[in-house]
């Protein structure tokens, strides 16, 4: 398994930066653009994944396994976060019969 081809030898690291930043920006724009809470949660997942991708690319670039352990922990935290977020979503749909993010503006100002 040691001689499996790795993209880090061929693909420049700047391309991974470009891809990761583009995915992160799409996630930020989507979180600002949409009003459905579920879409906002999905955009958060997209942002977390873009950061994960960049961490893995940098880990391969520097030959450091610590970054991949960090990615593992980010996945754990993302799973916990989605569980709580979806529970809030279910409760909100049950109480207001809507999933509009503008209904949750009690803490806005």
């Amino acid at each position: 398994m040691e001689n499996v081809i790795t993209a880090i030898r061929v693909v420049p690291l700047e391309h991974y930066f470009f891809l990761s930043f583009l995915l992160f920006s799409i996630g930020v724009a989507g979180a600002l653009l949409r009003r459905n809470i579920l879409i906002v949660i999905m955009c958060l997942e997209l942002m977390l994944n873009s950061v994960n991708l960049l961490l893995v690319a940098l880990s391969a670039f520097r030959s450091d396994a610590g970054a991949q352990v960090l990615v593992f922990f980010i996945m754990l935290v993302a799973a916990a976060e989605v569980t709580v977020g979806l529970a809030i979503l279910v409760q909100m749909k049950r109480n207001t019969n809507d999933v509009d993010i503008n209904l949750l503006n009690r803490l806005k100002w």
């Binding site: 398994m1 499996v4 081809i5 790795t6 993209a7 880090i8 693909v11 579920l38 949660i41 999905m42 997942e45 994944n49 994960n52 991708l53 893995v56 690319a57 880990s59 391969a60 991949q68 990615v71 593992f72 996945m75 993302a78 799973a79 989605v82 569980t83 979806l86």
Partner: peptide
């Protein structure tokens, strides 16, 4: 697929299991 290209085999498997297998199915 990017993880597999980067030879991060463990993370590729965990990613498929946790994200597509658990989180998105939950959504």
């Amino acid at each position: 697929g990017h993880y597999i290209l980067l030879n991060a085999q463990f993370l590729a498997m965990v990613h498929v299991i946790v994200y597509t297998g658990a989180i998105l199915i939950l959504m």
